[in-house]
Amino acid sequence: MKKIILSLMLLAVTIQAQDIYATFSVEADQSANLAFTSSGTVNSVSVDVATEVKKDEVLAQLQNSDLKAALNIATTALKYAKKDYDRQLKVKKLVDASRLDSFAFKYESAKAQVAYQQALLDKTILKAPFDGVIFEKIVEVGDVVSGQAIRTILRLQSLHKRKLILEFDQKYWKDIKVGQVFNYSIDGDNKKYSGKISKIYPFADSGNRKIRAEVEAKDFVVGLFGEGYIIVPDEK
Protein backbone atom coordinates (compact mmCIF):
# COMPACT_ATOMS: atom_id res chain seq x y z
CA MET A 1 0.00 0.00 0.00
CA LYS A 2 2.84 2.38 0.89
CA LYS A 3 4.43 1.74 -2.51
CA ILE A 4 1.15 2.54 -4.25
CA ILE A 5 0.76 5.79 -2.31
CA LEU A 6 4.35 6.76 -3.10
CA SER A 7 3.79 6.07 -6.78
CA LEU A 8 0.67 8.21 -6.79
CA MET A 9 2.57 11.02 -5.12
CA LEU A 10 5.26 10.87 -7.78
CA LEU A 11 2.65 10.92 -10.54
CA ALA A 12 1.15 13.99 -8.94
CA VAL A 13 4.37 15.97 -9.38
CA THR A 14 3.64 19.23 -11.17
CA ILE A 15 5.86 21.92 -12.57
CA GLN A 16 5.27 25.27 -10.97
CA ALA A 17 6.64 28.55 -12.27
CA GLN A 18 8.35 31.24 -10.25
CA ASP A 19 7.93 34.77 -11.58
CA ILE A 20 11.01 36.97 -11.08
CA TYR A 21 10.48 40.69 -11.54
CA ALA A 22 12.85 42.59 -13.86
CA THR A 23 13.02 46.06 -15.35
CA PHE A 24 14.67 46.83 -18.67
CA SER A 25 15.74 49.50 -21.11
CA VAL A 26 15.76 49.20 -24.90
CA GLU A 27 19.07 49.39 -26.77
CA ALA A 28 19.97 48.93 -30.42
CA ASP A 29 21.45 45.54 -31.20
CA GLN A 30 24.34 47.39 -32.89
CA SER A 31 25.39 50.99 -32.54
CA ALA A 32 28.48 52.97 -33.50
CA ASN A 33 29.94 56.44 -33.05
CA LEU A 34 31.47 57.35 -36.42
CA ALA A 35 34.40 59.73 -36.87
CA PHE A 36 37.17 60.61 -39.31
CA THR A 37 40.67 59.52 -38.35
CA SER A 38 42.16 62.08 -40.73
CA SER A 39 42.30 65.87 -40.52
CA GLY A 40 40.62 68.19 -43.00
CA THR A 41 37.54 70.14 -44.01
CA VAL A 42 34.24 68.32 -44.51
CA ASN A 43 33.43 68.47 -48.22
CA SER A 44 30.16 66.51 -48.31
CA VAL A 45 27.65 64.82 -46.02
CA SER A 46 25.22 62.52 -47.82
CA VAL A 47 23.02 61.52 -44.85
CA ASP A 48 20.80 63.11 -42.23
CA VAL A 49 19.00 61.96 -39.08
CA ALA A 50 16.66 59.04 -39.89
CA THR A 51 18.51 58.19 -43.12
CA GLU A 52 18.67 54.43 -43.67
CA VAL A 53 22.05 53.25 -44.94
CA LYS A 54 23.66 50.05 -46.20
CA LYS A 55 27.01 48.64 -45.15
CA ASP A 56 29.94 50.36 -46.93
CA GLU A 57 27.72 53.22 -48.14
CA VAL A 58 29.59 56.55 -48.21
CA LEU A 59 28.26 58.86 -45.49
CA ALA A 60 30.63 61.82 -45.61
CA GLN A 61 33.91 62.94 -47.20
CA LEU A 62 36.68 65.39 -46.47
CA GLN A 63 38.24 67.56 -49.15
CA ASN A 64 40.67 65.13 -50.75
CA SER A 65 41.52 66.36 -54.25
CA ASP A 66 45.21 66.52 -53.32
CA LEU A 67 45.18 62.90 -52.15
CA LYS A 68 43.38 61.78 -55.29
CA ALA A 69 46.05 63.49 -57.39
CA ALA A 70 48.81 61.86 -55.33
CA LEU A 71 47.17 58.47 -55.84
CA ASN A 72 46.99 59.05 -59.60
CA ILE A 73 50.70 59.94 -59.66
CA ALA A 74 51.57 56.83 -57.66
CA THR A 75 49.41 54.64 -59.91
CA THR A 76 51.14 56.02 -63.03
CA ALA A 77 54.55 55.44 -61.48
CA LEU A 78 53.56 51.84 -60.69
CA LYS A 79 52.42 51.30 -64.28
CA TYR A 80 55.82 52.27 -65.70
CA ALA A 81 57.80 50.55 -62.94
CA LYS A 82 56.02 47.31 -63.85
CA LYS A 83 56.81 47.80 -67.54
CA ASP A 84 60.50 48.32 -66.78
CA TYR A 85 60.58 45.29 -64.50
CA ASP A 86 58.82 43.09 -67.07
CA ARG A 87 61.38 44.14 -69.74
CA GLN A 88 64.23 43.17 -67.44
CA LEU A 89 62.64 39.80 -66.74
CA LYS A 90 62.59 39.03 -70.47
CA VAL A 91 66.36 39.55 -70.70
CA LYS A 92 67.33 38.51 -67.20
CA LYS A 93 69.87 36.03 -68.59
CA LEU A 94 71.70 38.96 -70.19
CA VAL A 95 71.80 41.26 -67.15
CA ASP A 96 73.43 40.85 -63.79
CA ALA A 97 71.36 40.00 -60.73
CA SER A 98 71.95 43.35 -59.01
CA ARG A 99 70.48 45.26 -61.98
CA LEU A 100 67.42 43.01 -61.97
CA ASP A 101 67.07 43.47 -58.23
CA SER A 102 67.10 47.26 -58.60
CA PHE A 103 64.17 47.14 -61.02
CA ALA A 104 62.35 44.71 -58.75
CA PHE A 105 62.90 47.10 -55.84
CA LYS A 106 61.49 50.05 -57.81
CA TYR A 107 58.46 47.97 -58.78
CA GLU A 108 57.76 46.83 -55.21
CA SER A 109 58.30 50.35 -53.88
CA ALA A 110 55.82 51.69 -56.43
CA LYS A 111 53.22 49.12 -55.30
CA ALA A 112 53.75 50.09 -51.68
CA GLN A 113 53.37 53.79 -52.55
CA VAL A 114 50.03 53.13 -54.26
CA ALA A 115 48.80 51.21 -51.21
CA TYR A 116 49.94 54.03 -48.93
CA GLN A 117 48.24 56.76 -50.96
CA GLN A 118 45.06 54.68 -51.17
CA ALA A 119 45.07 54.29 -47.38
CA LEU A 120 45.41 58.06 -46.92
CA LEU A 121 42.51 58.66 -49.32
CA ASP A 122 40.34 56.05 -47.60
CA LYS A 123 40.71 57.92 -44.30
CA THR A 124 38.92 60.91 -45.84
CA ILE A 125 35.87 58.83 -46.77
CA LEU A 126 33.52 57.77 -43.99
CA LYS A 127 31.51 54.61 -44.71
CA ALA A 128 28.77 52.76 -42.83
CA PRO A 129 30.19 49.74 -40.95
CA PHE A 130 26.82 47.93 -41.04
CA ASP A 131 23.23 48.32 -42.28
CA GLY A 132 21.35 50.75 -40.07
CA VAL A 133 19.84 54.19 -39.57
CA ILE A 134 21.51 57.47 -38.63
CA PHE A 135 20.12 58.67 -35.29
CA GLU A 136 22.38 61.67 -34.67
CA LYS A 137 24.25 64.03 -36.96
CA ILE A 138 26.91 66.33 -35.50
CA VAL A 139 28.61 67.67 -38.64
CA GLU A 140 27.99 70.07 -41.53
CA VAL A 141 29.81 70.84 -44.76
CA GLY A 142 32.69 73.18 -44.00
CA ASP A 143 33.37 71.86 -40.51
CA VAL A 144 37.02 71.16 -39.73
CA VAL A 145 37.93 67.86 -38.11
CA SER A 146 41.21 66.69 -36.65
CA GLY A 147 42.72 63.23 -36.68
CA GLN A 148 44.57 64.12 -33.49
CA ALA A 149 41.40 65.09 -31.59
CA ILE A 150 38.90 62.58 -32.91
CA ARG A 151 35.25 63.54 -32.38
CA THR A 152 32.07 61.74 -33.28
CA ILE A 153 30.25 63.27 -36.25
CA LEU A 154 27.53 60.65 -36.89
CA ARG A 155 25.81 58.01 -34.78
CA LEU A 156 24.51 54.84 -36.38
CA GLN A 157 22.29 52.09 -34.99
CA SER A 158 20.77 48.89 -36.35
CA LEU A 159 17.51 49.53 -38.18
CA HIS A 160 15.20 46.90 -36.66
CA LYS A 161 17.11 44.69 -34.24
CA ARG A 162 16.90 45.64 -30.58
CA LYS A 163 17.96 44.14 -27.25
CA LEU A 164 16.27 44.54 -23.90
CA ILE A 165 18.80 45.04 -21.11
CA LEU A 166 17.14 43.42 -18.10
CA GLU A 167 18.05 44.02 -14.46
CA PHE A 168 16.94 41.66 -11.70
CA ASP A 169 17.85 41.12 -8.05
CA GLN A 170 21.18 39.36 -7.59
CA LYS A 171 19.66 36.85 -5.13
CA TYR A 172 18.21 35.04 -8.14
CA TRP A 173 21.60 34.47 -9.77
CA LYS A 174 21.24 30.69 -9.53
CA ASP A 175 17.71 30.67 -10.93
CA ILE A 176 18.01 32.64 -14.17
CA LYS A 177 19.11 30.70 -17.26
CA VAL A 178 19.50 31.41 -20.95
CA GLY A 179 16.36 30.37 -22.82
CA GLN A 180 13.88 31.24 -20.06
CA VAL A 181 10.77 33.20 -21.08
CA PHE A 182 10.42 36.88 -20.25
CA ASN A 183 6.88 38.31 -20.36
CA TYR A 184 6.90 42.10 -20.44
CA SER A 185 5.25 45.38 -21.30
CA ILE A 186 6.84 48.61 -22.39
CA ASP A 187 6.02 52.19 -21.43
CA GLY A 188 3.35 53.72 -23.62
CA ASP A 189 2.18 50.40 -25.07
CA ASN A 190 -0.66 48.32 -23.62
CA LYS A 191 0.32 45.26 -25.64
CA LYS A 192 1.96 42.34 -23.84
CA TYR A 193 5.16 40.90 -25.30
CA SER A 194 7.21 37.80 -24.74
CA GLY A 195 10.80 36.85 -25.49
CA LYS A 196 13.58 34.55 -24.35
CA ILE A 197 16.75 35.38 -22.46
CA SER A 198 19.67 35.21 -24.90
CA LYS A 199 22.52 36.32 -22.64
CA ILE A 200 23.26 36.69 -18.92
CA TYR A 201 26.01 39.07 -17.83
CA PRO A 202 28.64 37.28 -15.72
CA PHE A 203 28.73 39.83 -12.88
CA ALA A 204 26.56 41.60 -10.33
CA ASP A 205 26.57 45.39 -10.10
CA SER A 206 28.04 46.24 -6.70
CA GLY A 207 26.18 49.55 -6.66
CA ASN A 208 22.58 48.39 -7.04
CA ARG A 209 23.00 44.63 -6.41
CA LYS A 210 21.51 43.80 -9.79
CA ILE A 211 22.43 41.32 -12.50
CA ARG A 212 21.82 42.04 -16.17
CA ALA A 213 20.51 39.85 -18.95
CA GLU A 214 19.48 40.37 -22.58
CA VAL A 215 16.36 39.54 -24.56
CA GLU A 216 16.19 39.98 -28.34
CA ALA A 217 13.45 42.26 -29.71
CA LYS A 218 12.58 44.30 -32.79
CA ASP A 219 11.49 47.81 -33.76
CA PHE A 220 11.14 49.39 -30.30
CA VAL A 221 12.36 52.97 -29.93
CA VAL A 222 15.83 52.93 -28.39
CA GLY A 223 15.83 54.36 -24.86
CA LEU A 224 12.38 53.20 -23.82
CA PHE A 225 11.85 51.46 -20.48
CA GLY A 226 9.63 48.63 -19.35
CA GLU A 227 9.11 45.83 -16.86
CA GLY A 228 8.10 42.22 -16.74
CA TYR A 229 8.61 38.80 -15.22
CA ILE A 230 11.10 36.05 -15.96
CA ILE A 231 9.37 32.68 -15.83
CA VAL A 232 11.52 30.18 -13.94
CA PRO A 233 10.18 26.61 -13.97
CA ASP A 234 10.45 25.00 -10.55
CA GLU A 235 10.15 21.24 -10.31
CA LYS A 236 8.74 19.97 -7.02
Results as ranks from 00 to 15, higher is better:
Ala112Arg: 00
Glu108Tyr: 01
Lys93Val: 07
Ile150Pro: 06
Leu156Gln: 04
Gln118His: 06
Asp101Arg: 02
Arg151Glu: 11
Ser98Trp: 00
Lys137His: 10
Tyr107Ser: 05
Lys111Met: 10
Leu89Cys: 02
Lys90Thr: 04
Leu89Trp: 01
Arg155Gly: 08
Leu100Ser: 01
Leu126Asp: 15
Val133Thr: 15
Val133Cys: 14
Phe130Thr: 00
Leu89Lys: 10
Lys127Leu: 15
Val144Cys: 06
Gln118Met: 07
Lys83Tyr: 09
Tyr85Trp: 07
Ser109Pro: 04
Leu120Phe: 13
Ser146Trp: 01
Arg99Asp: 12
Leu154Asp: 05
Phe135Gln: 12
Gln157Arg: 15
Phe130Asn: 01
Val133Met: 15
Arg151Tyr: 05
Phe103Glu: 08
Ser146Tyr: 03
Ala112Ser: 08
Ile138Gly: 11
Ile134Cys: 10
Leu89Ala: 06
Leu121Tyr: 02
Asp101Cys: 00
Val141Ile: 14
Asp122Arg: 05
Pro129Met: 03
Ile153Met: 12
Ser146Ala: 05
Ser102Asp: 10
Lys127Asp: 13
Ser102Pro: 03
Asp131Cys: 03
Ser102Ile: 03
Glu108Leu: 04
Gln117His: 14
Tyr85Leu: 05
Phe105Gly: 10
Gly147Arg: 08
Leu126Phe: 15
Phe130Lys: 00
Lys127His: 14
Ala115Thr: 02
Arg99Met: 12
Leu154Cys: 06
Leu154Tyr: 04
Gln157Trp: 08
